[in-house]
Design a protein around this nucleic acid. Structure first.
Lengths: 153, 153
DNA sequence: ATCATATAGTTAAACGCGTGAATAGTTTAA
DNA sequence: TTAAACTATTCACGCGTTTAACTATATGAT
């Protein structure tokens, strides 16, 4: 690729990803802020979609230290949305699950987020948005590989 | 579009955008964290690319309250990276500019971020990444419109 | 010209989330 | 059995955010 074109693509990417992230986060927040922070929503979503979720797994998925996860889980557990249960075999590990209250709240916030995402996704042709998401997923794969290589140094 | 396809696209979008954001932010942080936080980098970048930048403008662009901007600017000004100058005509407004030190640091961090973005952008065909960024920019436009409509309620 | 209203920015308190270091408790392996 | 490794937590501290109150300045209707 031509150097100049690459530079231009980089600038456009940096600008647009910043812009979309800020605005999307702000819109999601507007939908769910009475119930959960955006991070809390994603944590709950992750637990709901995962079998036998642990703090370590969340820390890995969210790219933060385990102590940051403990803090978030504490807040959610204090509100009775999440339950901790120790593994009987290996008593170091703690499994995280949603309480009934947590599941209900997740359904509520998830629906709001889905409606929001639907409202902008449906403004594209199916072919365009499908191609977009395909490339986005490739990018996710590349970044995951880069993260792993970074750690392996 | 078919309901089922839409639901699938929404799920994929939510997952992949979460994933890319977390990983990209973490990679950027890894590059610049000795010098600036990621937010500070974006603030400095915005000021550098803007003529006569004000707190209000930043609050608008970053979708946060003005007091959040004041806090960030205070930290950067304390380090001598940003200067405040009052408008002589309208003495309420304060223009934000980078000091020489701030400009130098911006160049340094910007280069690191560019190299990082380049390293994953160049893993795509030019046609694919161009189409991706084009759609991404359309999405930014849609979200901007949605934000404005939200405010106008 | 004055006075109410609007605007730009700041401050302060409180909260959520992040890091890094220290700690407790529990395997695991030499 | 003892040392090393691992899971999770706590603590101290910093950054970024919101809300509410405040300062200072500008504007506009009367």
């Amino acid at each position: 690729m031509d150097k100049k074109i690459i530079q231009e693509l980089i600038d456009r990417y940096v600008s647009v990803s910043f812009d979309v992230n800020k605005k999307a986060e702000s819109l999601i927040k507007g939908q769910i802020e009475e119930d959960l922070t955006v991070d809390q929503h994603y944590i709950i979503r992750y637990i709901q979609n995962s079998k036998e979720c642990t703090s370590s797994e969340l820390a890995e998925a969210f790219d933060v230290n385990k102590s940051a996860i403990t803090a978030i889980i504490n807040r959610l557990a204090d509100r009775g949305l999440i339950e901790r249960t120790r593994d009987e075999k290996d008593r170091r590990v703690v499994y995280l699950t949603l309480s009934d209250k947590g599941i209900d709240l997740h359904h509520k916030t998830q629906e709001k987020v889905h409606l929001l995402v639907e409202s902008f996704i449906t403004q594209f042709d199916e072919s365009e948005i499908t191609a977009f998401i395909n490339t986005y997923e490739k990018l996710a794969q590349i970044l995951t590989t880069m993260k792993k290589e970074e750690v392996g140094e």
